[in-house]
Amino acid sequence: MRQRNRKFGLPGRWTAGGVCATVRADTTAATDEVDHMGMFLRWLCAFVLLALTYNPTPWNFTRWAAEHWNSHTSVTVLLGLLLAVAYIIYLRATLRSIGAFGMLLILAIVAALLWVLYDFGLLTLRKSNENIWLGVFALSLVLGIGLSWSHVRRRLSGQADMDDVDE
């Protein structure tokens, strides 16, 4: 029978200092499953990031920064830097996970899907606002899939990326 940590109920031996090094005993089963909610949340965060940066409504950073640059320069720079950090995190993870070719491939698949929807009359491209939202959606798919791909690949192949291995 496995010993449990009295304080937290985690697998491991109880010592005066807390949990010993055997705490990771039951963590592999949870990481083997593809976390659909996690994938959705990664995509949703990418969508929000892109929509905050630019969208067809007046509520986006690009329009706000253009209108308020003279009166709120410091806030504009701060928000721009925060957005840049978020983009660096997403783009770096996406490029490491699927690479530039993978990004282009996902965009090509989304473009082909939009083409099919247009050919069947399910999509019209006459309204520029809808086209902008489609672009935001397509780019968010690229970033969301790129951020989630390591998890999917680990589940499909059983192999972890070098970045996934604990030190």
Results as ranks from 00 to 15, higher is better:
A84V: 11
A65R: 09
G9L: 07
Q159C: 13
L123R: 12
L79G: 10
A108E: 12
R155S: 07
F47V: 06
I98N: 05
G102Q: 02
A108P: 10
T94I: 01
C20A: 13
S128A: 13
H36V: 13
A66I: 05
A25W: 05
A21R: 13
Q3W: 12
G80E: 06
N70C: 07
A112R: 03
W59V: 10
D32H: 14
R42F: 01
L123D: 04
W43Y: 15
Y118V: 15
W59A: 10
M39K: 09
N55W: 08
L113A: 15
W59F: 10
L139S: 13
R92T: 14
L125E: 06
P58Q: 10
L105I: 00
S157N: 13
Y118F: 15
L41D: 03
A16Q: 15
V165N: 11
K7G: 06
L49G: 01
G9N: 08
G121H: 08
S157A: 09
S148N: 07
L143H: 01
L52Q: 06
F8Q: 07
H72M: 15
V19M: 08
G102V: 01
E167D: 11
R154C: 05
L139R: 13
I132C: 12
T62M: 11
T22I: 03
I132K: 11
N55C: 06
G9D: 09
I145H: 09
H151K: 12
V48R: 07
N60W: 05
D35L: 05
F40E: 04
S74N: 06
L95Y: 12
G17A: 15
L49D: 04
V19S: 03
S128L: 13
D119Q: 15
V110N: 04
G121S: 10
E167L: 12
L81W: 09
N55E: 12
L117A: 08
R153H: 08
L95F: 14
H68S: 11
N5A: 07
A86F: 12
A160G: 04
N55P: 00
G9S: 02
D164G: 04
M39D: 04
R13Q: 11
W64Q: 12
W115C: 08
R13P: 01
D26Y: 00
L105Q: 13
P58K: 11
P56I: 06
L91R: 05
A86W: 02
